[in-house]
Every structure is written in C-alpha cells, then in structure tokens.
Design a protein around this nucleic acid. Structure first.
Lengths: 192, 192
DNA sequence: TGCAAAGCGGAGGATGCCTCCGTATCGTAT
DNA sequence: ATACGATACGGAGGCATCCTCCGCTTTGCA
C-alpha cells in the first residue's frame, strides 16, 4: 500500500497563496537558524506579512511547524521503500533508522518537537504518522520475519527510542550514531 | 571515593534563608503539579515573597530547577552504591538505570530539562554531574569487568540514552520500561 | 541602641501571544 | 470594463510573562 498523499492547506487566492509560501519559507529558514522558539512576530516580519495573516493561516506554532516539515518527513518515509528494495532486512531497518535520526540531527531542536508531536492529534500529523508507521512496519516486520530482530518489538517503541536520541539538544552527530548503534544492538534477538 | 557534597547557596541571614526555603518548597510543589513552565511570578506568589526576591536568588528558571532537584538527583546517585553492594554487576547497573528512569518519569516534563542540563555548565550541575558520573562509572566499569556489557560503552552515552527515553513528554511508564529493556539489551556484549 | 550591610518587593519597561475588525484585494458574473 | 460579494490583509491592543531597578525595611553586630 502506498503512503497517502498529504493534505495541503495551501489557499487558492493569489495573494493568500503568495503569503502562505512566504510564511512557510520564512519559518523554515528562521526555525532552522534560530530554533523553534523564535517569536512568530519575527517570522511574520521576515515574511513581510502582518501577524494577523500568520495567525489566520496557522492558528498555532505547531501548525506552522507542521506545514514546514511535513514534506521532509515524507521524504524520510519514502526512503524506507528504497532501503527495502536494496538491502537485507535488518540493514534496511538500520539504514532507515539512521536516516530518521539524521533527519532529526539536521533540524536541530526542531526534531524534539516533531517527535513529541508524533503522539498528538492533528490532521497533518495523523497522516504523517500513518505514513511513518506504514514505512516502519514494512521494514520492521520484514526484519522480524527474517529473525533478525526480536519478535516482540513494537514499532512505536523503536521510533520513540530513536527520536529520544536527539531530544537532548546539541548532541554531537557521532555521539548520536553511537547511541543508535546501541539501540540497534538492543533490537537483535536475545542471544540464547 | 565518596561523592562530593553539594555546594549550597542557601543564604545566611534569617529572613533570606526563610524566603529561600519558601521559594524552593513552592517551586517543588508547583513544578510537580503544573509542569516546569509555570510562571515564576506564580511561584513567588505561592511562596509569599516578591518577584524581586525570587529573581535575586535565582537569576534564571534553570537556577530554580537546580535548587529544587539537585537533592533528589543526589538520592538517585546514592542508590547506586546500594545496588553495587547488593546485586550482580549487570543487575546493579540495570537497577540503577531503572531508578534513573523512574526518577525522570515521576517528575514529568521536568526530566527533560534536567537531562538536557547535564550538558551545561553550572556550578550546581557540575558537581551533580560529577556525582552521577562517579556512581555510573562504578557500576558500568564493574559490569564491563565482569564481561556483562560491551567494553566499548561510554557512560555518557548510556545516560543520554536513558535520559532520552522520557524526553517525549507523557510517555507511559510501561512503555518507558519496554524502551529501557531494549537499551539494556543493547548494552550486552555482541553475540559472537 | 544605633547603624551599615543585606535583603525585600513591586512598579514598570520589554517582549511575545493571540484576537478583532476596519480596510484592501481578488475573482467572477454581467 | 465594471461592479460586487467573498476573501484576505495587517496592525492596534489586551493580556501574560520575563526581568530589572531602586527606595524602603529588616537584620546582625558592635
């Protein structure tokens, strides 16, 4: 089953669409550079729109985060299918988790908020989560079937663990990868 | 080597000491009940002191967090020595990490902030960290010596991993313990 | 008992969140 | 081309929080 397309809230009217794009672009840049606690007024200013416009389109800070990063999460999901095709079951899972982690690292503190949001209820994230879960299940189930990971693993546990790795802001990438290696070892079937 | 005593910023003058205690107590209760994003003015109000007094004593929200929880972190450290005495190496390490995790869980979102702070530079946390590391090294090194965990583990990696588990707020305790079990498996020597 | 040092506390400036509504712009029907 | 209803814009302003600053009070000591 292919992942569901993401719903898109981009408005139809020309001026509205233009402002939507400006806001998302400004938010992407600003969140990446200055962290997700940048004031929304600052983002509106950079986008050259009024604060009212921002709030009409994105009722909450989270809504803006969603719009900014949903697309990139999707690309992480998509990669799962490539890995599945090209690698052995465990390696595919490992590679995917690595890219999942890498995605988080490249986004700095943003990753934390996004991973936290995985538990929340928002139209965007519901679908995102479904896509992540679908991709994850594919890889995890194959690895289970091949006997290369413990059969009692729950996907959300694995994701949460990987997500937790870069929760502590400013973790060094090489440390993050060491942590992931520990987790990957933990996924292996218990040595009898 | 016994852990170092914690430096105590408790002031000497009677009125100052009284207010210090009131603030810490109010903060402890309020953070526990309403999360760490309670306004500092609210805490000052509950403590029955002015906001100025709070800020003079605790220049930042983090400083207040430190004062509140340093003592409890210490108790987690202390338990390491009990575990060391009473359990086999790996079990002692596991038990300690479990209590480390349990400490975090019981504090809700506070745990995140504290774990993040482990990387920071503050007089309080420097010593805290030293104590945690000392306790952790004791258990980890013994487990390594017994060949019950991988020899290449770094203590801070392990702590960060465990700390990361309850970074995602609102994790269910049983899920948290499942995650810890995965991590514990990951600490084991690679099955040859 | 008197006094200097230490402490107190809240007014107030700065900033951020979010709402509301008068004005401007767009798309379309004529 | 024009007119008009729907849609969108944007910033003033209400509210909350952060944090600083400084005149007044309390304390401990001589």
């Amino acid at each position: 089953m292919a992942p569901q397309p993401l719903p898109c809230a981009r408005p139809t009217r020309a001026d509205a669409a233009r402002n939507y794009d400006r806001l998302v672009t400004a938010a992407r840049e600003t969140f990446a550079k200055h962290g997700t606690d940048t004031s929304l007024e600052e983002i509106a200013r950079r986008a050259g729109v009024g604060i009212g416009t921002l709030y009409r389109r994105f009722p909450s800070r989270t809504a803006l985060l969603e719009a900014v990063y949903v697309e990139e999460i999707q690309s992480v999901c998509d990669r799962a299918y490539d890995f599945d095709r090209e690698l052995a079951p465990f390696d595919a899972l490992a590679a995917w988790l690595r890219s999942f982690l890498g995605y988080g690292l490249s986004k700095g503190s943003l990753a934390s908020e996004l991973t936290v949001e995985l538990g929340k209820e928002s139209p965007f994230f519901q679908i995102c989560k479904a896509n992540v879960q679908e991709a994850g299940h594919l890889l995890l189930d194959k690895a289970k079937a091949a006997g290369e990971v413990r059969a009692d693993l729950e996907l959300m546990d694995v994701l949460r663990l990987v997500g937790g790795i870069n929760m502590g802001r400013d973790i060094a990438p090489e440390q993050a990868h060491r942590l992931l290696d520990i987790v990957l070892c933990g996924l292996r079937p218990a040595a009898s």
